[in-house]
Write a protein that binds this DNA or RNA. Structure first.
Lengths: 164, 164
DNA sequence: CCGTGGTTGTTGAACTGTCAACCAAACTGT
DNA sequence: ACAGTTTGGTTGACAGTTCAACAACCACGG
């Protein structure tokens, strides 16, 4: 689709410049996430999703979160999280316990093995993020990136869920 | 993982500020792409990948590309593209023909139906991109986003593949 | 109480993407 | 001419995701 082929619709098209910027963003982000995913997988055997689960759990006092909170933090669907956690439980990285306050709920806790796997994985992942993103940009560029996407996230989620 | 728990490794950790920015970027981008995917799917029945295939084809003079070029443009694996194109061919959106110059090659062409589907889908998708990204940011922010991710892409792909 | 509606989490089927193996055609060097 | 390598593309098995249906539980108003 070229930019200068307006239809009878009341759509405001992107300018040529905006289109280039949009494609750069989409293409760059896609390749970046793919590279990070690939390197983490190679070096630690974890997917980025599993890694993020461990990170979120590691940040709570008792290394435990309700399934729903975890799903919200990660912006994953409930069923997706259930499947992921089941697999991680089979690998001994996390364990699930029924929740006392709310009998519907399930508490997901990080095991000691999960903690060790995370500690072992973190350095190389941080290095990947540095190599491919942080160190490639100026501090100002990187900060602008964060600010802009935070704005986007707030707009999308209605301002809620400040944790992620 | 908290930022202030250094290990014995020679890893430079992210500062607290960098970590927030990285999370904003990752979380914002994930939600943005998910929202765009979802809206496009709802409104047109296309996945963003199928949409991108049609866009790339529509931009060539004869609406045709070799499988490999298409795969490179989209940063998709060859096998992934084969599967995608097979499904799209079943829906009558594209068709494949052997390539004359190189008997190994396959030319992928957009059908008239594919064109019409794209023309019908484009306005609402552009609107989604506007609603959730372009119009949420200042022009400067959006431009900075594009520039930064272009830098990242060039760094990752070794500067090649300027088209995407 | 009871019932209605909303929340929490799981399940299984269908779909999509990944990975390794593979074939065929094209280069490469001798 | 021809073995060896590289490139282009496909295939099938497997892994991960989505979606709709479901069961269990809470909360609130008759």
């Amino acid at each position: 689709m070229t930019t200068d082929t307006p239809t009878a619709q009341t759509v405001e098209w992107l300018t040529a410049e905006q289109q280039t910027q949009w494609r750069s963003f989409r293409g760059g982000a896609a390749r970046l996430f793919a590279a990070l995913e690939h390197e983490l997988e190679q070096q630690t055997g974890l997917s980025t999703h599993e890694y993020e689960v461990l990170v979120r759990l590691s940040e709570t006092p008792d290394r435990t979160l309700r399934m729903a909170q975890l799903a919200d933090n990660l912006a994953h669907s409930r069923s997706r999280l259930t499947h992921t956690i089941r697999r991680m439980e089979e690998q001994g990285l996390v364990s699930r316990l029924p929740c006392v306050e709310d009998a519907r709920g399930v508490n997901c806790t990080m095991t000691e093995k999960g903690w060790q796997v995370l500690v072992a994985a973190a350095p190389s992942h941080v290095q990947s993020v540095r190599d491919h993103l942080v160190d490639v940009l100026t501090p100002e560029q990187f900060a602008a990136l964060g600010d802009a996407m935070e704005t986007v996230r707030v707009h999308l989620t209605g301002g809620a869920c400040h944790v992620e």
